[in-house]
């Protein structure tokens, strides 16, 4: 492995969050294209030798992570920081923000039919959602959108990777309604 590749591996191993190609380039004083090429080589090398870790692209950056096959082993290991669960209300609120952003709180509440203040506060506090601007409407309400943290936590590269409900499922719903 090249010296740069080894340094990249060290940086990714030590970092608790995803690192972008640009960030890594700055840290390692190397051109971004070169960094991206080395990252690809690093990821391919892990795949080739069936390594226990994988290089994943999430939220516009790169993370070194374990593979799902070893979930049970790690669970038995214990003592690993587990992230706190998200409540159903928070998950629904997050779904509205993620799929329809940017949205105001009033829009959120209309869609869910209930108040969203608590769920929204949780999501803001956990860095999944942030204020992205204000709507040009009476009262200039705050608009909310998802963060990079959200993409990372859900293993998504970008919003384009948000899963869509199956078309058949949607059709079925419509038939039921009619």
């Amino acid at each position: 492995m090249s010296e740069l590749g080894a340094a990249l591996e060290a940086a990714l191993f030590a970092s608790p969050r995803a690192l972008t190609g640009a960030e890594l380039g700055r840290v390692l004083d190397a051109p971004e294209e070169l960094v991206e090429r080395e990252l690809a080589a690093l990821g391919a090398a892990y795949e080739r030798r069936g390594a226990g870790v994988q290089l994943r692209r999430v939220g516009g950056g790169w993370r070194l992570m374990t593979r799902p096959e070893h979930a049970q082993v790690l669970a038995r290991l214990g003592g690993l920081a587990r992230r706190a669960a998200l409540s159903r209300a928070a998950m629904e609120t997050l779904a509205v923000v993620a799929y329809r952003q940017p949205v105001t709180r009033a829009q959120l509440e209309e869609l869910r039919g209930v108040g969203c203040e608590g769920a929204l506060a949780t999501l803001l506090e956990r860095g999944m959602v942030e204020e992205v601007g204000r709507k040009e409407a009476p009262g200039r309400p705050v608009l909310y959108g998802t963060t990079r943290e959200f993409l990372t936590a859900f293993g998504l590269r970008d919003l384009g990777e948000l899963p869509e409900p199956e078309a058949e499922e949607l059709l079925q719903e419509r038939l039921e309604l009619e």
């Binding site: 374990t66 690993l80 998200l86 779904a95 943290e149 859900f154 293993g155 409900p165």
Partner: peptide
């Protein structure tokens, strides 16, 4: 769908800081 993703990601380490 988000909950499914979340569950899948929950078993990957290190957990996001």
């Amino acid at each position: 769908l988000l909950a499914t993703l979340w569950a899948r990601e929950s078993f990957l380490y290190p957990a996001p800081d």
